[in-house]
């Protein structure tokens, strides 16, 4: 009985390996769900394409004084960042729905780390952020966008984008733990993501803005991300923007991962 109890109480390979294994199994669950409901990918496929078309052809001429092709070069790296921030909203909504349906009660009654269901769901979101990058770059090139640096910097831009998406989405996870309905998650996250993505250097040069708005753009985490991606895709300074971006990413994780875990533990 003692030996049986010992194997029963100690997961194979220790707790870190167990967390990795459980999170992988749970990430797989999320991916199966995504594959079964491809319409859940509209917000990372059709929606960014529509935004790109809208801003390039409807507003682009007016904003850039007629130079649509030049504006597309400026706009696309920024829109990539905006789409990543928006792409994380669905995660909080899905987790909120799962909890309401009682699916997470089963996970909670199993001997897995408290963080495993959240870590698994976040990990599965890699696929969505990669999709955003592929769709934006692919469709962008179709309508005339050109990478002016090279393959490796472009690849680095994609890597940074996905990594930023994985950090930023913890805000959405946290909100998903706090509020009652998936609709409320979406409402609150839009309230956050809209000012962040529009009050930035995504659509216009910061120098054209009034002073108080310039201040907001400078303290906005989307701004250094956009500058970094722009540098990696169309050339320009990268290192200084990258440092600020990485600092923001670390900050997001340090603040929102513990908040999300605490919210999850409290949600009874």
């Amino acid at each position: 009985m003692t030996t049986l109890d010992a194997t029963l109480d100690h997961p194979r390979g220790g707790s870190a390996a167990a967390l990795l294994r459980h999170a992988t199994a749970l990430a797989r669950r999320s991916l199966i769900k995504t594959a079964r409901t491809p319409e859940a990918l509209l917000d990372v496929t059709l929606q960014p394409v529509i935004f790109l078309l809208l801003f390039t052809y409807l507003f682009g001429g007016a904003i850039s004084g007629g130079d649509r092709a030049g504006y597309l070069q400026f706009l696309l790296p920024g829109m990539l960042a905006q789409s990543l921030a928006m792409g994380g909203i669905a995660l909080g909504q899905n987790l909120n729905a799962d909890i309401e349906k009682g699916v997470f009660d089963r996970f909670r009654s199993l001997p897995v780390a408290r963080s495993a269901p959240l870590v698994g769901a976040v990990a599965a979101d890699i696929v969505r952020y990669l999709t955003v990058c592929v769709v934006m770059l692919g469709f962008g090139m179709l309508i005339g966008f050109r990478v002016q640096t090279g393959f490796v910097p472009a690849l680095a831009a994609v890597g940074l984008s996905v990594a930023f998406g994985l950090c930023f989405c913890w805000i959405s996870v946290w909100v998903g733990m706090l509020v009652r309905t998936p609709g409320a998650v979406q409402g609150l996250m839009f309230l956050l993501v809209f000012p962040l993505s529009f009050g930035s250097n995504v659509f216009v040069q910061t120098s054209t803005l009034p002073g108080w708005l310039q201040w907001f753009v400078h303290v906005n985490p989307i701004t250094p991300l956009v500058s970094t991606i722009r540098g990696l895709l169309i050339g320009g300074p990268v290192a200084s923007h990258l440092v600020v971006t990485l600092a923001w990413m670390a900050g997001l994780l340090l603040v929102f991962v513990p908040l999300a875990l605490r919210g999850y533990a409290r949600r009874a």
Partner: peptide
């Protein structure tokens, strides 16, 4: 083992996938 008041199976997973997932989470 716990079975809650409302059947808390994952609707988008098959019967097999639901049970295999639980098995994996039980190591």
């Amino acid at each position: 083992g716990l079975t809650g008041q409302y059947a808390s199976v994952d609707e988008d997973l098959t019967g097999t996938q639901n049970l295999v997932l639980i098995g994996q989470l039980l190591d």
